[in-house]
């Protein structure tokens, strides 16, 4: 890469000769890093500080109480923590097999030409704004769920007790399904990157020993990429946990613990966004506290994922940094 060789000699002299001593340059860089560090600290401090009143008036146990009723001064977060975990679980139960299968197909089965095209398409889909998915969910999918999907599940799997209640369209099922569609591109894009860097020698070695195509994928590729795949899974989980507007539009927003997959529910993020407008005093502090809980879950999930993806050594292109 000859970055400057094509420029005519002396061209540099037409530019300004402004320069900085090495110390000054270094100082400016440090300032850049320090500003970011300061922003992060300010961010953490703001959220912690503003949710403190909730902890001091309600005690630590309020997080796990199950009643949210601002009129009674009860701000239990349990229904929302459960809602967050349940929607995420539905999304990941769907996203793991489908995402992994697609990533395997994209990395090893699809012909070269289609590989680039489909791979780009997947990365592009990861960029579609979440509110667009939300709009699609509430306008297009909710009626579909109400008329076909929910009645089907009720009549087929009603005996499990998971599908009691009215077919309303919105609820845990729809929210989980929308999250599934949203995290799928992330899941596929990162898994594909991780799978594609499995050393060729190992794949070819297994093939030379007479392993079938699936045996190669199952016994060589998947175990080799395990840490990175786990990282992809956790990153996608983190995205599902924190998704706000799309979920708020399709989950039905109920303050009670859901007893069926068709029940309306709420997540920490949808609770905050729906109640933020009218909240004040302890309720506002409780909402910031819900944000803090969400942050704690998100930070844990993310740091674990980063560590795993980094250990698998597949921090490749600029694009993959941005997709993640």
């Amino acid at each position: 890469m000859a970055a400057t060789s094509s420029e005519p000699l002396g061209r540099g002299q037409r530019h300004s000769r402004f320069s900085l001593p090495n110390g000054g340059y270094r100082a400016i860089l440090i300032v850049g890093g320090a500003i970011f560090a300061a922003l992060v600290i300010w961010f953490l401090y703001s959220i912690v500080n503003q949710s403190r009143p909730a902890f001091s008036t309600l005690g630590f146990s309020w997080i796990f109480q199950k009643t949210w009723n601002p009129n009674l001064k009860k701000f239990g977060l349990l229904p929302f923590i459960l809602g967050t975990l349940e929607t995420t679980a539905i999304a990941m139960v769907l996203a793991v097999p489908i995402g992994l299968g697609s990533a395997l197909a994209l990395a090893y089965l699809v012909p070269q030409r289609a590989k680039v095209l489909l791979g780009t398409a997947v990365e592009l889909l990861a960029a579609v704004p979440s509110v667009v998915y939300g709009l699609w969910g509430v306008i297009a999918l909710a009626p579909l769920f109400r008329e076909y999907v929910e009645p089907f599940f009720s009549s087929t799997f009603g005996w499990t007790g998971l599908f009691n209640g009215a077919d309303s369209g919105v609820g845990l099922m729809l929210a989980g399904s929308i999250l599934f569609v949203m995290v799928l591109p992330t899941m596929v894009a990162i898994s594909r990157d991780v799978l594609a860097v499995v050393p060729k020698e190992q794949v070819e070695g297994a093939m030379a020993l007479g392993a079938t195509q699936w045996q190669v994928l199952r016994k060589v590729v998947l175990p080799e990429a395990r840490a990175g795949l786990l990282g992809a899974f956790i990153l996608a989980t983190g995205r599902a946990l924190g998704e706000t507007v799309a979920v708020a539009l399709v989950i039905g927003n109920s303050d009670y613990i859901a007893h069926s997959l068709k029940s309306p529910s709420a997540t920490l993020a949808s609770l905050i966004i729906n109640n933020f407008g009218e909240a004040s005093g302890t309720e506002l502090a409780a909402l910031f506290g819900a944000g803090l809980v969400l942050l704690a879950i998100g930070l844990t999930v993310n740091s674990v994922a980063r560590a795993l993806v980094r250990r698998s050594g597949s921090s490749g292109s600029v694009a993959s940094v941005a997709v993640a």
């Binding site: 998704e243 944000g291 998100g298 993640a324």
Partner: peptide
Amino acid sequence: DVMTGVPSILMGIFGYIA
């Protein structure tokens, strides 16, 4: 790295508080 994964709603709360 971790900040890229922080739920975006928290940045909204941060802007509001700060």
